[in-house]
Design a protein around this nucleic acid. Structure first.
Length: 434
RNA sequence: CGGAGCGUAGCGCAGUCUGGUAGCGCAUCAGUCUGGGGGACUGGGGGUCGUGGGUUCGAAUCCCGCCGCUCCGACCA
């Protein structure tokens, strides 16, 4: 994409409403534009990141055996009355009426709907297990939206729902998602820590939160360094095998949020290995048994001919929140430092002298050779180009200036480290594409 | 939901206390010069002062209602 024609509006000054780093940078780098309290429009740069994250989530869900569907944002109140949650959910649920005065709602989550869909098809224990997920916009009418997309009212979420015949089967489904989540966040360049969680209003009795560490996180967390040293991508799980050992390896180390913190157990962790930090919740998984299947009349015929009420779990990832969380974990004073996997552009080619034949030719050549490159072909001076490149946070900056063009070299800058090197165009491409 | 604050040009703000017909920086447009970290000069354009009402000869400014947004706390994917 050529910057001279792109809709990538950056701001020199920070809009007054933004107080935390990710919100400030998302507005300044032109990722989003706020349209109401807690509601955002996604501009090209932000939308690209959102799609990158979504795609990683999708690939890891599919790999773990979940199947993608797409359920609507608007739901009928009738469905929620069946589970008893229509009255229980409270003012966080946005309720509306259609022209026939039928009560509707903008879905804050989809347990009822997916159970309704599933019960329409599943008749036999042979139809289980299944895990269905979708990536869809949710609305929760937060009392106080804040921190930009990190606590918005409308947000993009991946939510998966598993159906199993037995508790053991449900545990297996839970573990599949547990491991899939670790891989998902690791691929995004984030260090996510699973922590035992309170089950909250969704119910059930087995739950973990996935929290990434960032200085500006909203909750206090306590975690053993041993857990932080583990590599989620070390070996790909065999999702069909017994996953208990793999999950146990992760849950055997101490990790807790402030609410679940156990000072006595914490004392058992060697002092040098204790890490006390701030965290941002980016995922949450639950096993909740037959809470919805029972209340909504989902049952299948078992191998003995008798009805079985499926065991369920639900698994959420805050996709839009991850954009903010990634920035919280990867930025400096000048701007964003995108991890390669989610960067909106792989590299920016900065032409320092637009109109100079040498610079133009070399820049065009670099631009053509790099897939997903942004080309800063504006007739700006060097200052604004460098500033915007740092602000937008492209992993690589390919700087083409008159001197370099004459000598056949470019300057390559790695945004994450600040490292700069003068290299031949070929070596630059090798590093970027390699 | 308790407490506090803010709405004036695209963004950041001054002007409001003490009423007299709207200003600064950045951005933007035209031109000239410049050309490796948000450059300089010259000349332009752009504002229902959130909104409705009231007071007044006269309201961005005073009074009342409403709307929107933000911050702190409680709550929460």
């Amino acid at each position: 994409m050529r910057l001279s024609r792109a809709f990538l509006p950056t701001l020199k000054e920070t809009p007054a409403e933004a107080t935390i780093a990710s919100h400030r940078l998302m507005l300044r780098a032109g990722l989003v534009r706020q349209t109401s309290a807690g509601i955002y429009a996604w501009l090209p740069l932000g939308w690209r990141v959102l799609q990158k994250i979504e795609q990683i989530v999708r690939e890891e869900q599919d790999r773990a055996g979940a199947q993608e569907i797409l359920m609507p944002t608007i739901q009928s109140a009738e469905l929620w009355r069946q589970s008893g949650r229509y009255d229980a959910y409270g003012p966080e649920m946005l309720r509306l009426k259609d022209r026939h005065e039928r009560e509707m709602l903008f879905g804050p989550t989809n347990e009822e709907m997916v159970t309704d869909i599933f019960r329409g098809f599943a008749k036999s224990y042979r139809d289980l297990p299944r895990n269905l997920y979708h990536i869809q916009w949710k609305f929760r009418d937060e009392v106080r939206p804040r921190f930009g997309v990190m606590r918005g009212r409308e947000f993009l979420m991946k939510d998966a729902y598993s159906f199993d015949v037995t508790k053991e089967g449900a545990q297996h489904s839970y573990r599949q998602m547990f491991l899939a989540y670790l891989r998902t966040f690791a691929r995004m360049g984030l260090k996510a820590v699973p922590m035992r969680a309170d089950t909250g209003p969704i119910g059930g009795n087995l739950s973990h939160e996935f929290i990434i560490l960032a200085e500006t996180g909203e909750s206090q967390v306590f975690v053993s360094q041993d857990l932080l040293d583990m590599d989620a991508l070390a070996d790909a799980p065999d999702y069909g095998a017994d996953l208990a050992p793999a999950v146990d390896a992760w849950t055997s180390h101490y990790a807790a949020t402030e609410e679940m913190h156990d000072p006595v157990a914490w004392e058992q962790v060697p002092e040098a290995r204790r890490v006390s930090a701030r965290g941002i919740e980016v995922g949450h998984i639950f096993y909740f048994g037959t809470k919805y299947s029972a209340s909504m009349g989902l049952s299948v015929q078992g191998s003995d001919g008798k009805p079985v009420v499926p065991e369920m779990g639900s698994y959420g990832i805050g996709v839009s929140r991850l954009v903010g969380a990634t920035i919280e974990a990867n930025h400096d004073e000048a701007g964003i430092k995108w991890p390669d996997a989610v960067a909106p552009f792989k590299a920016v080619v900065i032409n320092l002298k637009q109109g100079d034949s040498g610079c133009d030719a070399l820049s065009e050549r670099m631009y053509a050779a790099i897939p997903e490159a942004l080309y800063d072909d504006r007739t700006e001076r060097a200052g604004p180009k460098f500033a915007d490149a740092d602000l937008m946070g492209h992993p690589w900056q390919v700087v083409v200036g008159p001197r370099g063009a004459a000598n056949g070299v470019v300057e390559l800058k790695r945004r994450a480290t600040g490292e700069k090197m003068e290299v031949s165009p070929e070596d630059a491409l090798k590093k970027i594409l390699g």
